[in-house]
Design a protein around this nucleic acid. Sequence first.
DNA 1: TTGTATGCGTTATCAC
DNA 2: GTGATAACGCATACAA
Lengths: 330, 330
Amino acid sequence: MTTLNKIATEAGVSITVTSRALSPVPKLNMRVAAKTRDHVLAVAQKLGYRPNRNAEFLKRGMNPVIGCFLPSRPDSLLAKLMQGISEEADLQGFPISFHFDMTVESYTDFINKAKSSKNCGIITYPYFKLDHKIEQVVDEYRKVGGSIVLIESVSSQWRWHDCVSVSIDNYHGGKLAAKHLLNKGVSRFFATNYSNIPERIDGFTDAIVSDSKSVDILDAEDISGIVSKIKKHLAAFPGEKTGIFVSREPTAITLLCQLLAEGIKVGTDLMLISFDGLYTSEFSKPSLTTVAQPFKKVGALAVRKLVADIYNADVKSELVKPELIIRKSA
Amino acid sequence: MTTLNKIATEAGVSITVTSRALSPVPKLNMRVAAKTRDHVLAVAQKLGYRPNRNAEFLKRGMNPVIGCFLPSRPDSLLAKLMQGISEEADLQGFPISFHFDMTVESYTDFINKAKSSKNCGIITYPYFKLDHKIEQVVDEYRKVGGSIVLIESVSSQWRWHDCVSVSIDNYHGGKLAAKHLLNKGVSRFFATNYSNIPERIDGFTDAIVSDSKSVDILDAEDISGIVSKIKKHLAAFPGEKTGIFVSREPTAITLLCQLLAEGIKVGTDLMLISFDGLYTSEFSKPSLTTVAQPFKKVGALAVRKLVADIYNADVKSELVKPELIIRKSA
DNA sequence: TTGTATGCGTTATCAC
DNA sequence: GTGATAACGCATACAA
């Protein structure tokens, strides 16, 4: 194991200087001559130095954990997100602890621990929307200087907009869906509303409208209603290529089953494009063309930003673009 | 923060004794009078002691990580498994690092790290089956005394059977499926073969056969063939209640879509029971009755066993029973 | 800009 | 069965 001691000896400087040169804290980094730093860095690289976080954390008096507060809904996007977070946290040498109950108690517990052993951080979905008490707790945490990165914090209007966040560009995702249908020569457009994330529908609609066509927005709650409406439409306009954008994959799957049961040939009679890219989207028949959310990337980014913030580097929010996966349903 | 020092003072004994009394290593535990140990334990409990793993690990000269080697397939079972592992690892104060590429390199990297800083552990799917080189690497790791817990190591015949493992009781799961169909009054039985885990079909078949009925095993690779066979059967025996057991949910979803497209009413004409309990099984129409795998529990168990093994306690393999979730498809 | 000395909480060694 | 003491690798107050 390569320690600061060995590097110091090899480089011919003291441990202190070595420590500073390799410190993740920018302020300390500056307190060593550039030339010395480069030299130390080179030696560290050569010896394959990996900082002993146990020692660092012990000395710093912190028991740093990245607390991740994620939805308990165990879908495959969550798995990807956790993969990204885990791998990056491993790289950074930071332990993580996942929490899947978005209760005030859960947050309070973690934050109390975090206070007594500083330098922890939080990665969380913006559950403040759901429970105002959580907002208060996290708010206080931030005032004490606690680091936090928000995941999927879409709205830019609310008071947390100054928080660092990593989000999916849902608007762009909607546009991708629209463009694909347009490329396919579709001329009639349906979409199901999904109030939680209106950006998806907005992006879709804007792209269609800017092509001088219009979108018929349907009520996502009323699947049967959608099916019968589509059925009537297809009967009335047999020649026209028709497409529907379902901005949420669980809904898309339900709808697909019902359409099939009604004898509608999805992929030919009707183009269906989904949003999410869940694991099972590949296994339906026809398999779903979908706008996939690269949640692994989101997770990795979130960790990187959080760690940087913990060490007082400055960090900016980021918007990650989703990707179109073309399969059989459209 | 409660340290050994505080507990020692409060309990009126030395730090050394306190350390021994609270040690996770059984051998050390025994070197303190039972009476003293109970007292120390009580005080620790009262003060809410949480061991500082950083200090422990630093002293012990280990940089312990639990390396989890899991399938890269990001389905919801995996998410549950990761949840269970994470939460328990958090409780135990052990960092984890997830790996999703089942390559030899991935294992070798981790094991090399693990060697230089002892007391690491591995939780893994038995990928040895897929790549013999992995088997060699892990074998060597075990000879050096490395701790390992296998997940879903079903077969009891192969040479790794002496390894600690946490697995799903697939045979019992198959039986659950059969019993449910029998309870529903089904008298004609189909099942799709799934060679990877024959125990599911075995359990299903045994339960049916012991009720003096028989099962028609169909080729899971040939979904269209299954559909046409079922269709003919339903036409030939319109009165009889018919059921099919699909021992793998991705297949079940594909099959469901095709059945629906053929106008077969799943849940009335045909009872379909699935296996896995993936997230999306709830959203199909009809929603899937399924034998769900409690992977969260599996994850937690695996961690607990691994940590116990790392501290040289003795540990046994465990079989976790799956659970029947009754929905609309059967 | 660099170096010396000290201690974080724990476990291991060795004495009693 | 118990206790004093040293050491793990690192960060930092302070001195140079």
